[in-house]
Every structure is written in C-alpha cells, then in structure tokens.
C-alpha cells in the first residue's frame, strides 16, 4: 500500500465513525485509538458547526426572536448520540444533523414568523444538498464529448422545494438589521437546489417547465419527450438544460 493510500485510510478513519470502530481499521494500529477518537469528535463538531452557521444563517438571524440559535445543538446530548454513526460529508449524516437543528429551532418562539417552518425546510435542504463526494481536480471530470446524443439526467441530491411563501424575497432582509421580523409574502414558490461537481450549492426559482425537466430527466427520457412534456420548444429546452447543467442540477450521461 502506498503512503498516499495509508493517508487516505487515516482520513477515512477520522471521517467515518463506523469504519473507525471496525476491525479492518483497528487491526492496522496506525494511531492511538483514544487520541484518534478525540480528534474525530473534534472534527465532527467543527465540520457541522461550519455547515450549520452557513446554511442556517437565516434562522440564526432570527434567534433573538426564537431564542434558539441552531448551532448550540452541537453541544447537546442529541448530537453526541449521532457521533457513533457520523460519516463526515455523507447525505445521511447531513440530514441527521440538520434534523437536530430543525427540531431545536422549531421548539422556540414562532410569534410573527409564520414562514419559520418553511425556512427550516429550505435550510435543511441546502445543507443536505451540499453533502456527498465532490470533484477536487478538474482532471477527475468526465471526458468532454458530444452531449446532444445522450439523454439528460437529474443529479443525485438535486431537490425541488415547494413553498407557500416567497422566501427569496425575505432572506436578504433577515441578514440586515431589523427591529420587527421582516414579513414574507404569501406566494406559491418552487425553488431548485443543486450542487456543482465542485461542491458549490446553488438555488434558483423554478417554474413549471423547469420542475418538469428536473422530475423527468432520468437518463432515458429523450430530449424530444422532455420538450413535449415541459411544453418547451427545442431551443428553449436547450437553454433550460444549459442553465440546469451550470447549476449542477442536470448532467448528460455517458450513454452506457
């Protein structure tokens, strides 16, 4: 085994609690188990602190009303109970940690924040979308080729969030200084949340045509069928797919 592969084992042990507990890892005896466990727990708290502070920044801004800063859950028994199963960067762990934050904020005061539940749904979706393996080197990208011959496919982790409030209208205001909680217009809104190969999470408003393309793009549905179902002309579908690909919501398969 190369030294690089050994380093990867250590990184996996620090990231992946079930692996850390496995005989496969323990038999290697590469590091003091107690010290490694301490550092892994330190890393887990740091890893999710950064993500909660970033993705739950709007409910953080509302904490003086709710009385529930989301990041405090990282020093709670509920979070500690997750640690034996945590795999840093996995969608399952991101969802589990986000659920703890959502439950904590939801238990606070909600007076004057009728959209708090939807805000938490949105923030949770953003945090989960960010999880998963990412491309660190452009050399790792799939080879370029003619995309037109392949059917588009919605990327795993891409989600559509249907809301009764127009959250994008209020989000910037929540981060400004305010005395009264900023109101949010009641207006049916669909948001598309996706992540690029490099791990950048993006959100965009989605109309019915975009939602149809995202829901139907499975790597088999043809461009002709997608255009018909979404009610788009070929040029409109091409532009829509270009935008969705840029966001990381859709990719073109390899044809295999």
């Amino acid at each position: 085994m190369s030294d690089r592969a050994l380093q990867d084992l250590v990184l996996r042990a620090l990231s992946d609690a079930p692996f850390r507990a496995s005989s496969e890892w323990r038999h290697r005896a590469l590091a003091d188990p107690a010290l490694l466990e301490r550092f892994a727990r330190f890393l887990a708290r740091h890893f999710y602190y950064e993500r909660i502070v970033h993705f739950f920044k709007y409910s953080r801004a509302l904490a003086r009303v709710t009385g529930r800063p989301p990041e405090v859950v990282l020093r709670s028994p509920t979070f500690d109970a997750l640690l034996p199963a945590i795999v840093l960067g996995s969608r399952e762990s991101a969802a589990a940690v986000a659920d703890v934050a959502v439950a904590h904020v939801s238990s606070g005061r909600r007076d004057g924040i009728p959209y708090l539940g939807e805000l938490l749904t949105y923030e949770r979706a953003m945090m989960v979308a960010e999880a998963g393996p990412r491309v660190w080197h452009d050399d790792d990208l799939e080879g370029a080729g003619s995309k037109e011959q392949y059917a588009p496919e919605t990327v795993e982790g891409t989600v559509l969030v249907n809301l009764a409030h127009d959250l994008p209208a209020v989000l910037p205001k929540l981060l400004e200084s305010w005395t009264e909680v900023p109101p949010c217009p009641e207006r049916p809104t669909t948001l598309l949340i996706a992540r690029s190969r490099h791990g950048r999470v993006a959100v965009a408003r989605a109309d019915a045509a975009i939602a149809t393309v995202v829901e139907l793009a499975d790597g088999r549905t043809t461009l002709v069928d997608l255009a018909r179902e979404a009610g788009l002309r070929p040029a409109e579908l091409e532009a829509t797919l270009a935008g969705l690909t840029e966001l990381g919501a859709v990719r073109f398969g390899t044809g295999s």
Binding site: R4, S15, V135, W136
Partner: peptide
C-alpha cells in the same frame, strides 16, 4: 481529503512524514 474525493475532514491535517509525501 482522500484522493478520490470521498472523504474530506474540512480541517487542516498534516501528511504522513514519509519519503513519498
């Protein structure tokens, strides 16, 4: 982060102090 990008501890961490590294 691992070479395949699957695991990332998101915090500074030293390499093995070896000839290869």
């Amino acid at each position: 982060h691992t070479e395949d990008g699957r695991y990332n501890i998101n915090y500074v961490f030293p390499p093995l102090y070896t000839e290869e590294f």
